[in-house]
Write a protein that binds this DNA or RNA. Structure first.
Length: 292
DNA sequence: ATCCAGGCTCCTG
DNA sequence: CAGGAGCATGGA
């Protein structure tokens, strides 16, 4: 299968983002090729993504043949994952008058906002990441995936899916504590898992609500505050207004790019980002990338 | 050692 | 309603 890529699109920048933790177990990058196990209609496909030539991605399924009617599901998955349908030139135009973005755009030109497709994974990742450093968050996520996620052995390598919500609902608290989740995180993860199982929230229903109502709906879950809600809105649901303004990484990036001598207070953050009235998600993502 | 991490809830005054 | 404690662990 081949997938045409939009202009601009920087495959190397995607790879750099996807490779940012060696504790990532839900995909791997091997010699410029991305490998990921995805489940479609209960069937597992190990897909490999590679850019053979500019302007298109080659997608191969490594573990089975792909039925005709599944092909477009896989292509849609990759399109959404790598955010190929967003007009990022419009983003560049929108920030053209703001000097702080010029070096970022130059350096990250063609970088797209990599998504987390699965809603439960996105919410869980937000909960896991609350108030701890990123390496530790990756450690916890890896622990949970290895303990509760389904996996498949293919050609001598083990590929994992993020845990199904039911597996987290059923999980013992003691075991989750051993896997480095705090008592709070355990409670919040179980609440989110239950909400998804019971259909109280779903990707489709949140998308239909629109940004502001979806934000409120997410915050109505215990353990999901403004930061987590906006994180999910930007990384999973694709809302361009998604803006986790309380984010510690964003604050560091603001300090760096605005050459401040201290980490900005929340009021200073609001002031520095007062002009961010559109493309908040991409602005945040590019600021995050400026740190690495 | 002390402080801060891709925060949130709950409790105070 | 603003402000602060507590949560839990790891890295700088």
């Amino acid at each position: 299968m081949t997938l045409p890529t939009p202009d601009p699109f920087d495959y190397a920048a995607c790879l750099a983002y996807l490779k940012r933790s060696d504790k990532e177990v839900l995909h791997q990058v091997v010699e410029e090729r991305i490998h990921k196990l995805i489940r479609i209609h209960g069937q597992d496909y190990l897909i490999q993504i590679h850019q053979e030539q500019a302007g298109e991605l080659e997608i191969v399924c490594l573990n089975s043949s792909v039925p005709q009617d599944i092909e477009h599901h896989i292509l849609s998955y990759v399109e959404e994952w790598l955010d190929l349908n967003t007009d990022i030139k419009a983003f560049y135009i929108s920030v053209a008058a703001e000097p702080v973005f010029q070096p970022l755009i130059e350096r990250l030109y063609g970088l797209r906002l990599i998504k987390v497709i699965d809603l439960f994974e996105a919410i869980s990742w937000a909960i896991i990441g609350q108030q701890i450093n990123l390496p530790f968050a990756y450690q916890i996520k890896q622990n949970l995936v290895l303990e509760y996620g389904e996996s498949k052995d293919i050609y001598g390598h083990r590929y994992h899916l993020f845990p199904h919500p039911q597996a987290i609902v059923d999980a013992s608290e003691d075991r989750m504590r051993e896997l480095k989740c705090s008592r709070q995180k355990i409670k919040y993860l179980k609440i989110a898992a239950k909400a998804i199982l019971e259909g109280e929230i779903s990707k489709q229903s949140l998308l239909a609500l629109g940004y502001e109502e979806a934000r409120k709906k997410l915050i109505s879950l215990k353990g999901i505050g403004n930061w987590s809600a906006n994180y999910v809105l930007m990384r999973c649901l694709g809302f361009s207004e998604g803006f986790p303004i309380e984010d510690a990484g964003l604050h560091q990036a603001l300090r760096l790019n605005f050459h401040l001598d201290h980490k900005p207070t929340i009021d200073e953050v609001r002031s520095l980002t007062a002009s961010w009235t559109q493309w908040q998600a991409y602005r945040t993502f590019y600021f995050w990338q400026s740190l690495s």
